[in-house]
């Protein structure tokens, strides 16, 4: 698993990256009440908002950790947004993205680096 400083996680299988938000991000948001995930076929660019997660208080963008094309958005989150709080790194995934440039993965943090980053916050 790899991580961004904005608290997204990425799990790569073949050329498809599954993307979500970390436990830390989910805890910071509090109760998630609304999630908007992208449709299949949508082109996303690393660093741009590709999904939205909303708590009672506020809406937050979820940023694409890599560029590519959306293979699937997690439609289950529309009806059950609380999954993001319950299982952020499992069933609470946001989208699967076909990675266009694997070298973008090199710039992401590994588990040890992300743990150190969290400890520094």
């Amino acid at each position: 698993m790899h991580y961004t400083k904005d608290h997204e996680w990425v799990r790569v299988e073949g050329d498809v990256a599954t993307v979500g938000i970390t436990q830390y991000a989910a805890d910071q948001l509090g109760d998630v009440v609304f999630v908007e995930t992208p449709e299949a076929g949508k082109a996303v660019t690393k660093g741009d908002g590709f999904a939205v997660v909303e708590s009672v208080k506020a809406a937050s963008d979820v940023y694409a950790p890599v560029s590519g094309e959306v293979v699937e958005g997690n439609g289950a989150l529309a009806d059950q947004p609380a999954i993001v709080n319950e299982d952020p790194t499992g069933n609470g995934w946001f989208a699967k993205i076909r990675v266009s440039d694997r070298s973008q993965l090199d710039g992401l943090m590994d588990q040890a680096a992300y743990d150190a980053y969290l400890a520094s916050l």
Binding site: G30, V33, V56, K57
Partner: peptide
Amino acid sequence: PVQYAGENGGVLNEH
């Protein structure tokens, strides 16, 4: 305090 901790805390529970 914006919300409290624990299983009883959080905006939805508190509301």
